[in-house]
């Protein structure tokens, strides 16, 4: 049950953000061109949601193993080297996710209380918090991916 809600949560958040951004932008073109009165805050909201889209969408991309990298060299490596490459790679990704996005992201969010957007004066905490949330979701999906690929690696070993 929890899994059923949790699994698509990143897709839901990021897709909603995307839909709102597109709608707001089109409505604003209409308001400006037809009624000559655009709303100044439309862009501010769009850009804020964009940050959510990107950092939460990062989890959607991880879930589908869609992050751009180059496996050419690793695939050419002999097996023991390959396994250590997988380990170093995992450590690098975890340190980016846990130390940078979750830890530093939280501390930046905590410090941002008096930093506000120019028009609506929304606290940047509501924007910056997308970073640790996105980092956390991504870390969970990366762990699943890692377990899956390690299992596949081990199976291969059994087969040989």
């Amino acid at each position: 049950m929890i899994k059923k809600i949790f699994d698509p949560i990143d897709d839901i958040i990021a897709t909603l953000a995307l839909a709102v951004i597109i709608s707001l932008t089109v409505i604003n073109v209409f308001l400006r061109f037809v009624l000559n009165s655009p709303v100044a805050w439309a862009e501010e909201i769009s850009v804020g949601l964009f940050i959510w889209l990107v950092f939460v969408g990062m989890s959607s991309a991880m879930k589908r193993d869609n992050h751009i990298g180059v496996d050419y060299f690793v695939n050419k490596m002999p097996r023991p080297l390959k396994i250590s490459a997988i380990i170093i790679r995992a450590l690098a990704i975890y340190s980016a996710l846990i130390y940078v996005l979750i830890y530093l992201g939280s501390s930046l969010t905590a410090q941002a209380h008096s930093k506000v957007t120019p028009i609506l004066a929304i606290s940047y905490q509501y924007i910056d918090i997308a970073v640790p949330i996105g980092g956390g979701l991504t870390a969970i999906h990366f762990t699943r991916l890692l377990i899956r690929s390690l299992k596949a690696e081990l199976k291969k070993e059994g087969g040989e």
Partner: peptide
């Protein structure tokens, strides 16, 4: 090592902050 490019950039930039005492690492975010 096939680290996704975004993550490779994040980690190497984080390394930079260990070398300098000018700026705190949360600036990376």
């Amino acid at each position: 090592l096939n680290v996704p490019i975004a993550f490779a950039l994040i980690v190497s930039t984080a390394v930079y902050f260990f070398f300098i005492d000018n700026f705190s690492s949360s600036i990376l975010i």
